[in-house]
Amino acid sequence: MILSIASGKGGTGKTTVATALALSLGENVQLLDCDVEEPNAHIFVTVKLYKHVRICVPVPDIDKQKCDFCGRCQEVCSFNAIAVLKDDVLVFKELCHGCGSCSFLCPRAAIGEIDKEIGCVEAGAFEAGTFEIHASQTRTLQTGGRDGLAFVHGRLNVGQAMSPPLIRAVKQHGDRTRTVIVDAPPGTSCPATEAVRGSDFCLLVTEPTPFGLHDLALAVGALKKLEIPFAVVINRSGLGDGKVDDYCQQRGIPILMRIPFKREIAMAYSEGISIVEAMPEYKAEFQKLIESIERILVATHPE
C-alpha cells in the first residue's frame, strides 16, 4: 500500500503523522519524504543516509551558429523560458520544466539539452549509533524498532523552484512490497499533487482552525480530482472550533484520529523526537490508524 500524508495548510502535522506511522509499523515499512523543499522526516526517524544521487533536469542548450532566430522555440515554450531577439536567444533555465518541446521542434536542430542539477535523492536505513540532529545536538540510539524501516528523501538545491522532477525521483524508489508512507509537501499545487499521485490512500492532516479548514477544503477538492480515497486526521485537537468536524460530517469524510493540542507533543517535536517515542502509548493509536485505513480500502475494494 502507498499511503500519502498531505494537508493543504502547512505546519499541521504531516511529518508528525508520517514519521509516527513509520515508527509504529516498525516492520516492512518505507518512508519517502517528498517535502523536498524542506525535508525533515529524517530527524524523527534517525536513519543513517548512505546513498546519494544527483538529480538533474534537461534544459535547452542553443547552438547560435545553427540558430536563425525564427522564434519557434519561444512559441512552443509553455513556461516563457526562452526569449528570441533579433540576433540572440536567451534561455531562462530557472523557468524551464525540462519538457523538451523546444529541442524536439527546432526546425534547424539547433537546440541540444544539457543537465541542470536541481537536487539529490538520499536513501538510508536505521543503524544503531549516534545521530546528528542538527549542528549542536546528537542522539544515541541502540534500537528503536526501526530495523525494518527503509528511508528515502529528496533535497532540492537552494534557489531551485522546480521540485516535481525531484519528487518523482524520490517516488521511483517506492517499494510496493512494503507499506510505503509518503510525506507530502503542503499546499495543493504541483509539488503536493506530484507527491500524492498514485497513492492508494491519502491522509489529510488538519487543525481545527479557520485556516486549517480553508486549506483542507482545497486539498479535498484536489484529491477528488485525482480520485484518491482519503480521510482526515485532526491535529492540535481542542484548539480552535468545531467547523472541521462539521465539514467532514456533512461530506461523509471519516475522521480517523485526533491528536490533542498538548505542550509535551510540541516539546518532543522541537527536539526531533517522535510523538510515539516521547509518549509510547500513542504507538497503539497509530497502529489503529493504519488498521482503519486498511478496513476502508478493503470495504471499497473487496478483491
Partner: peptide
C-alpha cells in the same frame, strides 16, 4: 503564470 517580463522584453 510566469515569465511575463521575459515575454514583454521580447
Amino acid at each position: 503564470a510566469g515569465g511575463a517580463g521575459i515575454q514583454s522584453g521580447q
